[in-house]
Amino acid sequence: MTETGEKKGLPDVFIEPINMSELDRGFRKEIQSMPNGEELSACFACSTCTSACPVANIWEIKPHQLIRMIILGMREKVLSSKEIWLCLTCFECQERCPQGVRVTDIFFDCKNLAAEENMIPDSIVALGKELLEKGQLYIVTADWEREDLDLEPDVPGLSTDAVKRVLGGTRTGRLVKGGK
């Protein structure tokens, strides 16, 4: 493939163009072969998903752009994006897609791929660590909450040991221990 990277003859642009050689032609197939990816290619770039998203307004890369990027093969850009982790997983986009693309589920697939490649944001790793160490994400610390309701201070029957043990053997455990 001819490299078209040389700047000579090209006009000055504010954005660096993405060169074709940076595109991973197999990325679309990779996602498509995952459990939620079958309808991916049906996307016709209507951007309904972005209109439906309650948080995309503050995203740099919008949901429809992520889907188009997957189709064009911008693997690195999608998997390293913070947006796939900012998704609320409310499924508003997926519910509305006129072509049946499973947008939210595809973002889950992307997160799994990114995790495999150690591209998890620190904040997410910290959550994983919390879960692994304490066996729960939300710990009832203020005793008065229960006391006000005339309940005993400890949650009866709560055992986090099993959760910690199970998680330790999963990818979450692996990523937290081996990850950054």
Binding site: M1, T2, T4, G5, L10, V13, I15, E16, P17, I18, N19, M20, A45, I61, K62, H64, Q65, R68, M69, I71, L72, M74
Partner: peptide, 14 residues
């Protein structure tokens, strides 16, 4: 070059 409205990115294609 083409600016793809779908991804919002400028592409240089061959």
């Amino acid at each position: 070059s083409v600016f793809d409205q779908g991804t919002g990115s400028l592409l240089r294609l061959n």
